[in-house]
Computed example of a mutant assay.
Amino acid sequence: MAILTWVLISLAVWHFAVFVPDKFAGGIVGAFAAAIFGGIVGGLLLSGLSLPSRADTDVATVLLGIPGCLVALAALWLVGARAEAQREA
């Protein structure tokens, strides 16, 4: 259940990617994949590499997916922006 919540919160955060310039490596689809992957990995790392059970899933568990999602999106955006700057130069 925890992975489902991390995927869903990552999907919600990914929707805000339309507010930044599209410099993501792989475009918006790459940003989608990075957000989901980052949310799952970040949630796992912040929960101590354990999966909370269905009864242990609460709002705090949901929020654990946000930092990983944001880090993954930022990293992908920086990679894409650097590649675009190199193409222009």
Rank of each mutant, 00 (worst) to 15 (best):
M1S: 14
M1R: 07
L4T: 13
L4H: 05
T5A: 14
T5R: 07
V7A: 15
I9L: 07
I9S: 10
S10D: 08
S10H: 08
S10F: 07
A12C: 07
V13Y: 12
V13P: 03
V13N: 10
V13R: 07
W14E: 11
F16A: 10
F16C: 05
A17W: 14
A17P: 04
V20W: 11
V20K: 13
V20Q: 09
F24W: 11
G27L: 04
I28D: 10
V29D: 02
A31N: 03
A31V: 03
A34I: 00
I36C: 04
I36L: 13
F37T: 11
G38K: 04
G38E: 07
G38N: 01
G38I: 06
I40E: 02
I40Q: 05
I40F: 03
V41A: 15
V41Y: 12
G43A: 13
L44N: 10
L44M: 15
L44C: 04
L45A: 15
L45F: 15
L46F: 03
L46P: 00
S47M: 12
L49Q: 07
L49I: 08
S50Q: 13
L51K: 04
L51W: 08
P52H: 09
P52T: 08
S53N: 09
S53Y: 05
S53T: 15
R54S: 15
A55Y: 05
D56W: 02
D56E: 14
T57A: 03
T57F: 01
V59S: 07
V62Q: 10
V62C: 06
L63V: 09
L63M: 14
L63E: 03
L64Q: 10
L64W: 08
G68V: 06
A72N: 03
A72C: 03
L73N: 09
A74E: 08
A74D: 04
A75K: 00
L76N: 13
L76M: 01
W77L: 03
W77I: 03
R82D: 15
A83L: 11
A85Y: 02
Q86C: 02
R87H: 11
R87G: 04
R87P: 02
E88C: 07
A89G: 12
